[in-house]
Amino acid sequence: MILLISLIVGVVYVRYVPVTGVQSTILTDLHTQSIKVVDIREYNQSYNYPIPKSINIPIAYLKRNYQEIGSKKVHVIASDHLEKNMGIRLLRKRGFKVMSYTIINGNGKRQQKSA
Rank of each mutant, 00 (worst) to 15 (best):
R92I: 04
P50W: 12
A115D: 04
V9G: 04
Q67P: 11
M99Q: 10
R94V: 10
S100H: 04
V19W: 14
V38W: 04
K84L: 08
L91P: 01
V17K: 11
R94F: 14
R92T: 01
V9E: 11
L90K: 14
I51G: 05
Q23G: 05
P58G: 10
M1L: 13
Y13S: 13
Q112N: 01
I104H: 03
G95I: 06
P18E: 12
N56H: 03
L3M: 05
I69V: 03
N107G: 06
Y47N: 09
K113P: 04
S54H: 11
I88C: 00
I35W: 01
I59V: 15
I40Q: 06
Q112R: 04
K63D: 14
I40L: 13
K113C: 01
V11G: 06
D80W: 09
V22P: 00
T102A: 02
V74Y: 01
R110Y: 02
I69C: 02
K72W: 13
P18W: 07
Y13W: 15
N44D: 14
S24H: 13
N48Q: 15
S34D: 06
I26M: 08
G10A: 15
V17M: 12
N56V: 08
I8G: 05
I69R: 05
I69A: 04
D29Y: 12
G95C: 14
K93D: 12
Y49L: 08
I104V: 12
V38K: 06
S100I: 00
K72D: 07
I103A: 08
H81N: 15
V14D: 14
V11Y: 14
I51D: 03
V14N: 10
G108M: 04
M1Y: 12
T28G: 02
V14C: 13
G95L: 03
K97G: 03
K53M: 07
S114W: 07
I88D: 00
R15V: 11
I26H: 12
Q45L: 12
I59L: 13
Q67I: 14
N56Y: 01
R89L: 07
Y101K: 05
H75M: 05
P52Y: 12
N85E: 09
L82M: 15
V19Q: 08
T25A: 00
L3H: 07
D29K: 11
G10E: 10
N107P: 07
A78F: 11
D29P: 11
K109C: 08
S24L: 07
S100C: 02
I35S: 02
L27G: 04
S114D: 08
V12F: 15
K72M: 09
Q33S: 13
M86R: 12
Q112W: 00
I2M: 09
I55V: 06
K97C: 02
Y49V: 03
N56M: 02
Q111D: 02
L91I: 01
L30D: 05
Y47I: 07
S54T: 08
S100P: 05
P58M: 12
R89G: 07
V12Y: 15
Q23S: 10
Q67K: 15
P50T: 04
Y43S: 08
G10P: 06
L30Y: 07
L7W: 14
